[in-house]
Amino acid sequence: MRIAVIGAGAVGGVIAALADRAGHQVAVTARGAQLDALQQRGLHLSGHWGEHTARPHASAALEERPDLAVLTVKAQDAHIALAENAESLRGVPLVVVQNGLGGAEAAAAQLPATAVVGGLALFAASYLSPGEVSITTPAATYLGLPAVRLDPAAQAGSADRVAPANPTAPAPGDAALRLATATLGAFMPIEVTHNFAGAQWTKLIVNQVNALPAITGHSVQNTIADPRLRAVLTDSMREAVGVARARGVHFETLLGLSDPLLRVFAAAPRPVARLLPLLMSRRVGKTPNPGSTLQSIRRGQLTEIDHLNGAVVREAYAARLEAPINARLVALVHRVEAEGAFITPTEVARAV
């Protein structure tokens, strides 16, 4: 099968390498040094799912129409990437693997002739250097169909949503979901969820671990091990859970987190609640995990923080609430982006 991966970074690189190892005809899009490396040396995968050097067809934009496409660029780059590849994607099932909220809905609105499936990569991958990606924590990728679509105001940044015009009609993405599940599931762990919105929110809680590494320059494990930073992380997670509950979200069970557990976590005394990040750190494993946001910082790229902690802030606003801790974390990440210097844990704890 012809599989295209739009955005061969850490997550996209892993999917492309695994598809190549399974014998598929793989095309990827990339930029700069990554594109040069892929064209000259190929794509080398290492880590928990073994070693493989893939030789995908690499270009700045897709040159042929695939049978299945996977979008793995950061949320802030998705609109441009889809516009650049719109002709090649016309009528092609598209899996949108992104953090944050609303990515699949936005892609479906931008490409109305394309059946879109939402994807959440729960495995942790690192972009080591151009042409080199590694799995630091193995886990499944969840696929599902968004239960709602974004209205025009939401596509402009509002968190308001509307239900489908006919919620009992078969979803147009059903066939695409079956194809994506069968194809990707043959070479990587795949789980299907019927509560994709809840899964997005659970992943958003997990992704709370991304901000502090990006701010301090330390790994996920080291930030959680620091009592000062763990207290900040706990408070930001509890704030996010509160916002989700106000928005009527039922969390999907992912990576050891569930709706009942997160409700208890939000209500527990703070010293007890701080145990949850420690449990999350154990699931990450011993291999230092920088988190995707710190990886962007190290590459000199803008991060997706506005679609992680920033999404919590927007959802809070839609619920007529505030999310001051998440807002401060967003501001600190933007400060690191602008100044190019990490912030000490002491200063972070004082600022938040």
Score class of each variant (00 low, 15 high):
86 A>M: 03
284 V>P: 12
134 S>T: 13
177 L>D: 08
307 H>G: 01
115 A>H: 10
331 A>S: 14
6 I>Q: 10
101 L>P: 02
314 R>P: 02
248 G>W: 11
122 L>I: 01
42 G>K: 01
92 V>A: 13
321 L>F: 08
145 L>K: 11
351 A>H: 00
275 L>K: 12
279 L>I: 14
6 I>M: 04
75 A>G: 02
322 E>R: 15
223 T>K: 02
34 Q>D: 01
183 T>C: 14
292 S>Q: 10
118 G>P: 10
311 A>R: 08
140 A>L: 09
134 S>K: 14
21 R>Y: 01
218 H>G: 03
270 R>F: 07
336 V>S: 00
179 L>F: 09
252 E>F: 08
343 I>G: 03
231 A>F: 00
245 R>N: 13
138 P>L: 10
129 S>K: 15
59 S>T: 07
328 R>E: 09
161 R>W: 11
332 L>C: 08
147 A>Q: 14
77 D>W: 06
261 L>I: 13
284 V>T: 14
248 G>E: 10
99 N>D: 09
227 P>M: 05
68 L>N: 03
156 A>S: 15
68 L>Q: 04
76 Q>E: 13
288 P>K: 03
10 A>N: 07
2 R>D: 14
326 N>D: 03
343 I>Y: 00
127 Y>N: 03
203 K>D: 05
47 G>V: 04
26 V>H: 05
285 G>T: 10
256 G>N: 13
245 R>V: 15
173 G>M: 05
230 R>Q: 01
277 P>Y: 01
211 A>Q: 13
223 T>H: 12
62 L>H: 12
269 P>T: 11
70 V>Q: 05
213 P>N: 08
188 M>R: 14
55 R>S: 03
12 G>D: 09
8 A>M: 08
132 E>V: 06
177 L>G: 05
123 F>M: 15
221 Q>S: 12
183 T>V: 13
96 V>D: 03
280 M>Q: 10
197 A>L: 14
50 G>W: 07
78 A>N: 06
279 L>G: 15
39 Q>K: 04
326 N>P: 00
172 P>E: 14
296 S>R: 08
6 I>D: 12
3 I>W: 00
288 P>M: 12
108 A>Y: 06
251 F>M: 06
66 P>G: 06
311 A>N: 02
318 A>H: 11
267 A>N: 01
148 V>W: 15
32 G>F: 06
9 G>L: 00
219 S>F: 05
195 N>Y: 08
121 A>H: 09
127 Y>C: 05
76 Q>N: 04
10 A>S: 12
87 E>S: 11
